[in-house]
């Protein structure tokens, strides 16, 4: 419902060559990543599609968080990281020398494990993105703020207190605010790194509903440690173990008839 009020500027579906499959947003090819000597990601190959929710699951330390942070190159904020292989975003290699990382991050929004609003007012939090990208007109900013908050299904809760500090919100509201903050720069893809791990069940449910709605307009890649969550909201699921992709398929298949023994063991709770 709230997605209806989003602008018509949603990503226009490309004419896909393949009419059965949706077009590929992210294509990872032979990706390897090391933290110093620690080989954290091993030969990852993953194509991800438009307007789908792709879940990444696996035990802690399997590299799923590292992988999602590689998709917008946030992983490079850690010192001593080396990477080989390529990740194509909309057919362009994001590791290309001339590729501007700021541009990538403008097109690809990220929601973090812990809600991380800025110590500013709710309004300024949402307006932060548009402002750094040069949008100064107050009227436009107002519209963007309302639209984004509606898009993140939090408008009704905060519309009367836009000038209050964002830290006054509850954890669940903060996380939806962070999602709204991403929506304000109208990204193409949303990366979510365990977005509900710090939330209570009720807030988790709200965020999950939101994700399902957002899927209409955005491609979403979500890391989760919660398998039920992956089953509930995702279209595709990738299972990571020790830095490798063990299995990647439709979520239904992964959770009903996985082809790899290790996937089955993990899903049925034998380890992890």
């Amino acid at each position: 419902m709230s997605s209806l009020s989003m602008s018509t500027e949603v990503p226009v579906k490309k004419e896909t060559k393949d009419h059965v499959n949706k077009s590929v947003v992210y294509d990872t090819k032979n990706l390897n990543l090391w933290y110093g000597d620690n080989h954290a990601l091993k030969n990852i190959n993953l194509p991800m599609h438009e307007n789908e929710v792709t879940a990444i699951i696996g035990p802690s330390g399997c590299g799923k968080s590292t992988y999602i942070k590689t998709l917008n190159r946030m992983v490079e904020l850690v010192q001593d990281v080396s990477i080989s292989g390529e990740i194509l975003y909309r057919d362009k290699n994001i590791f290309d020398k001339n590729y501007r990382v700021e541009e990538l991050r403008t097109r690809v929004g990220m929601v973090f494990q812990k809600p991380n609003p800025f110590p500013k007012s709710i309004f300024d939090n949402i307006a932060y993105g548009p402002r750094i990208h040069g949008i100064k007109d107050k009227k436009i900013l107002k519209e963007i703020v309302e639209k984004s908050l509606r898009g993140a299904a939090i408008w009704d809760e905060v519309k009367d207190r836009l000038q209050e500090n964002a830290y006054g919100l509850s954890g669940g509201q903060q996380q939806r605010l962070c999602i709204a903050r991403c929506l304000a720069i109208e990204p193409d893809v949303l990366l979510m790194d365990e977005p509900t791990s710090a939330l209570d069940p009720k807030s988790t449910l709200k965020v999950e509903e939101l994700i399902k709605e957002l899927k209409e307009n955005y491609s979403i890649i979500i890391v989760t440690h919660n398998m039920q969550q992956a089953a509930r909201i995702s279209d595709k699921t990738a299972f990571f173990l020790n830095g490798e992709v063990i299995e990647y398929d439709d979520t239904d298949i992964i959770f009903s008839t996985p082809s790899d023994k290790r996937t089955e063991d993990y899903i049925t709770g034998r380890f992890g």
Binding site: S7, P130, I140, E186
Partner: peptide, 19 residues
């Protein structure tokens, strides 16, 4: 119901000032 704001266009405009 809402006037369409093309943020992407605005951002693209800003990117021209990227230099």
């Amino acid at each position: 119901m809402q006037k369409t704001v093309s943020i992407k266009d605005l951002i693209r405009k800003d990117n021209n000032k990227n230099k």
